[in-house]
C-alpha cells in the first residue's frame, strides 16, 4: 500500500487550510442561514437596514410554534418516515439481488442490461406522472400516501441497481469461489460475504432512496391532495407559502429539522465509503 504523501511545506499547509475553510464555509452556510432565520423575528428579517447575517433583535420561537401548531408538520414527517422506510425496503429487496445477478451471472449481457436499467432512471418524472397517475387510479390509490410508495421504487430501483452493480463488481470473484469451497452455497456466500462487503454501497442506496422520498415533489403533489397524506417535501412548501406570502422562519425551521439528520447520517457514512473496503483482500 502506498503511504499517503504528507504536505509539509508552509505554502502547502496554507493551501490545504484555505481549501478546507472554503468548502466548510460554502457547505455550512445553508445550515447557518436556516438556523438564524428560524429564530429571527419578522421585523428583523424584513428590515433592509439590518445586517442579514446575524440576529439583530432577540431570538424568537414563534416560527417553530407556528410550524408545530398551525401546520401538520409532524404528520408530514411521520408520513415521510413511513413512506421512506417502505421505499427503502422495497428498493433493497429488489435492487440488491438484481445488481448481484447483473454483476456476476449474466456475463457480457450484464453490463448492457445494467446500462439499459440505468437509462430508465433518466426518463424525467414530468413525463411520467401522467401515465403513472392512470396506474395509480387503476390501483385505487389516489390521494393516498401509498401512491408514492408504489411509484418511488420505479426510479430508486434502477439507480440503486446500477450503483450496487459497481460495488459487487469490485469484489473479486475469487472470494466467492473461496467461500463456496469453504462450504457455503452461492446464496450463503451472497448473504454472508457479498452483502457485508458492500455495506457502503447499501448505505448509499438507503440514503439515496430516503432523501428522494423526502424531497420528491412532482409525484407527491399530483397524486396526493389531502394535507394529512402528504410528505414533508410537498407539505412544507404548499402550506408555508401562501400566494406570495412566505413564512420564511417556519420554512427554514422545517428545512433545518428535516435536513440535519440526513446531513449527520451522510457524514457518518462518508468515512465508511472512503475507507478502501476491499483493499488487502487480494494481491
Amino acid at each position: 500500500m502506498a503511504s499517503r504523501r504528507r504536505v509539509k511545506t508552509w505554502f502547502g499547509i496554507m493551501v490545504m487550510w484555505a481549501v478546507r475553510v472554503f468548502f466548510a464555509v460554502v457547505l455550512g452556510f445553508p445550515f447557518y442561514w436556516m438556523l438564524i432565520t428560524t429564530f429571527k423575528r419578522n421585523s428583523d428579517l424584513y428590515d433592509l437596514k439590518n445586517n442579514p447575517f446575524i440576529l439583530n433583535e432577540l431570538p424568537t420561537l414563534d416560527h417553530l410554534r407556528w410550524l408545530f401548531h398551525e401546520t401538520l408538520f409532524l404528520r408530514w414527517v411521520g408520513n415521510t418516515l413511513f413512506a421512506g422506510t417502505i421505499v427503502v425496503v422495497i428498493t433493497l429487496l429488489l435492487a440488491v439481488p438484481a445488481a448481484y445477478a447483473l454483476a456476476r451471472l449474466t456475463g457480457a449481457w450484464g453490463a448492457q442490461l445494467g446500462i439499459g436499467i440505468f437509462l430508465t432512471y433518466l426518463v424525467p418524472s414530468t413525463l411520467l406522472f401522467i401515465p403513472l397517475s392512470k396506474v395509480i387510479s387503476a390501483l385505487g390509490l389516489q390521494d393516498s400516501l401509498w401512491s408514492v410508495i408504489v411509484v418511488y421504487p420505479t426510479f430508486t430501483i434502477p439507480f440503486s441497481t446500477w450503483l450496487l452493480m459497481g460495488f459487487f463488481k469490485s469484489i473479486p470473484k475469487d472470494i466467492e469461489d473461496a467461500a463456496m469451497v469453504d462450504g457455503l452455497t452461492r446464496w450463503g456466500a451472497f448473504v454472508k460475504l457479498m452483502i457485508p462487503m458492500s455495506t457502503s454501497g447499501i448505505l448509499t442506496v438507503v440514503i439515496f432512496a430516503f432523501t428522494l422520498v423526502t424531497q420528491e415533489f412532482v409525484y407527491a403533489l399530483t397524486f396526493i391532495s389531502s394535507a394529512n397524506q402528504q410528505t414533508v417535501g410537498v407539505g412544507v412548501p404548499t402550506f408555508l407559502v401562501r400566494g406570495d406570502v412566505f413564512y420564511w422562519g417556519s420554512l427554514m425551521a422545517a428545512c433545518l429539522i428535516t435536513s440535519l439528520p440526513i446531513g449527520v447520517l451522510y457524514n457518518i457514512f462518508l468515512d465508511k465509503f472512503i475507507e478502501g473496503f476491499t483493499v488487502g483482500a487480494v494481491k
Binding site: P172, D174, I175, D177, A178, A179, V181, D182, L193, P196, M197, F277, T278, V279, G280, A281, V282, K283
Partner: peptide, 13 residues
C-alpha cells in the same frame, strides 16, 4: 476439498 487461490481470496472484512 480445500483450495488456496492465487489471490489468496481472504475475506477482507
Amino acid at each position: 476439498i480445500a483450495m488456496v487461490f492465487q489471490s489468496y481470496a481472504l475475506y477482507p472484512h
